[in-house]
Design a protein around this nucleic acid. Structure first.
Lengths: 360, 360
DNA sequence: AATGAGAATGAGAGCGCTTCCATAAGCGCT
DNA sequence: AGCGCTTATGGAAGCGCTCTCATTCTCATT
């Protein structure tokens, strides 16, 4: 097998200097049309491809971005959420000639912070995309910032959003809309299964929901909250507790689709008819929400878009690094929609309650 | 911010030559204990980290592997399958100090082949992991082989397995066991929803299933086959056709879990009780199979293991490249299990049929 | 004490590219 | 024609590492 052609081969063939070839390849401003044409022709004649390693060494950039996901040792990851974000990120990377290397870390292990910092240090990537719950670790964010290493947050809570560039939906508002929706459906007794506590965006979903109840003049007493961890199994377990009470809720709100699927499972097992006996809502609008029966009313998040947008911001940031412009902590909020499906329905309530003031 | 220390800084501090530091860092055989100690101490004192780019340029290896997945423009990927394989691959990579960059390609676009070849050429990765349906493209495989570029196949069909190193289960055998199981349950009228036609391992599932029927002395006439494409939606649609016939099957076999979930959806819609009126089976044992109601009887594949094993083989291959040993086309078959859940049950059949010879 | 095999080390030549700096070419003016 | 200015080009110095090759050191053997 012949050796791959180098930039010098191209230069020789095109009859120009190596530097000129480099300039053409990197579309530097100062090149003549003639030189450009000759170089391009030589490149295609030789089937030349830049050696990324050499370029990286010389330029100091690897053109690789790293994406960090949470995944504990054995449990399934919150797969669809991750896949969708990753897919969007991959697309955006490819479009800009970047590669994306995905890392998984167990957030339960304390070592995760140093692992992420090591990722920033080892020079294999130019920037980091942090997903929950890593995106809410202030100490980590500050460490990264003091290194001057580019990164962007996905689905971060508002505190973290103030610190750095981020992409996500307004989880609080989404939770609120869900609350308003269910109140309008006539529900007055709620169950809520939360996500992991360190997961700020999950916490916001609850906050927003409670705000809706509050706005409508209802007290916290009409809601029972159980701590889930985003897994199907935790949905099953927590629903068990919430649904076996005497005054069980008429609507069960879950902080993601997988737990909603678990809740549905428990409802089935208990012989409850959904939505006649119980309304259930999910969050994220992952495929899970359509696979279960009945399909879930849920909040649609544009996860692919979030992934691609995160990468775009990150690349912009990486490129800007040379320039002196300092990075701004910009929270990019993308829109969400409440998707109404078969898992929720109106219940009949006394007219007096229906007349309650409900603010949007 | 100070510049990062280089190997020369370490060499100076340790009082040895740069080459010695390099040898220690790469654990070459010929180093004295004294040199080793001094270097290690200097490294930690300076908090030195090798510059991967420089190492790559000098050594010619990027220590990055590429994973190629199918994903069409808008449709959801077969997410859990992909995630699980990817997760296993990531783990194995990290353990060996490699990075994994994931690429998605649309197999419907003819350009996918040149994209993959470009991946091999651009020097950013040392090896390729090919998943279905790319792993069954002989032309691609041969092109890769003639380049001498390392790669490994995941879930490839037997033809491709003969050509190159591969990891997967024996899909044919799995299909056969599923057939034997359902026959033993008393089923005699079957529906089968296949995967995409170019997906060899999916085709094998059907082949094995038919073989089971054949072994039991049953003709093809007792089975109706419909072409799915692994999506939930195609499961819904194909089940529609299969279940609305007069002599509808008593068991519906689906080539993956997502389609089985779709079939379940249709069954619900048609008012059929699963498994009383209809048994349904999936394939892969992804989380989907437990999320739906009733949970699916399915074939468990150790997807994480497949991913990690693929990477291990690939790395071994990459490393061997220097040595003269030629690669062998080795098919690594991992074990699968039939997992019995609520979506299947025995049906009452005339004793005469039960006595039919059924071989395993 | 001389010899030689083998282990440890150092010097230095790249790996293929980017980029700085100096030079040359082009061009509108006076 | 001559001047200064901008724009295009070439030469060459690295980027930080690996790895070959030549050299020195060690030590058992004669």
């Amino acid at each position: 097998m012949d050796k791959k052609p180098t930039i010098d081969d191209v230069a020789k063939m095109a009859g120009v200097a190596r530097a000129t070839v480099s300039r053409v390849l990197n579309s530097s401003p100062n090149t003549s049309k003639r030189a450009r044409e000759r170089v391009i022709q030589a490149v295609s004649a030789l089937n030349y491809q830049v050696n990324q390693q050499a370029r990286q060494l010389a330029s100091g950039a690897s053109r690789i971005l790293a994406l960090v996901f949470a995944a504990d040792a054995e449990a399934e990851p919150n797969s669809y959420y991750h896949s969708a974000v990753e897919l969007g990120a991959i697309r955006a990377c490819n479009e800009q000639g970047y590669g994306l290397v995905t890392h998984t870390l167990d957030p339960a292990k304390q070592s995760y912070r140093s692992s992420i910092l090591a990722l920033a240090d080892d020079g294999r990537s130019d920037g980091l995309v942090l997903t929950p719950p890593f995106c809410d670790d202030h100490e980590l964010i500050q460490a990264l910032q003091s290194k001057g290493f580019p990164f962007v947050l996905v689905s971060a809570g508002p505190d973290a959003r103030h610190l750095s560039c981020s992409v996500g939906i307004d989880d609080r508002q989404a939770g609120l809309e869900l609350g308003v929706y269910l109140l309008l459906q006539g529900h007055r007794r709620f169950g809520f299964i939360t996500g992991p506590l360190d997961h700020k965006s999950a916490a916001l979903r609850l906050e927003g929901f409670l705000e809706a109840l509050d706005n409508a003049g209802h007290s916290d007493q009409i809601i029972e909250v159980a701590d889930g961890n985003f897994t199907f199994k935790s949905g099953i377990d927590q629903a068990e507790g919430l649904l076996s009470r005497n005054d069980r809720p008429t609507a069960l709100v879950c902080a993601n689709d997988d737990m909603a699927a678990g809740a549905l499972f428990t409802a089935h097992r208990l012989g409850l008819i959904v939505p006649a006996d119980l309304s259930i809502t999910g969050f994220d609008d992952t495929p899970v929400s359509q696979i279960v029966w009945p399909p879930l009313t849920t909040i649609h998040q544009p996860l692919r878009l979030i992934g691609s947008k995160a990468v775009e911001l990150l690349i912009a940031d990486v490129m800007r690094e040379n320039g002196s412009t300092t990075r701004v902590a910009e929270a990019h909020l993308v829109s969400f929609q409440l998707v109404e499906r078969g898992s929720t329905s109106k219940i009949s309530v006394p007219p007096s309650l229906e007349a309650l003031p409900i603010s949007g």
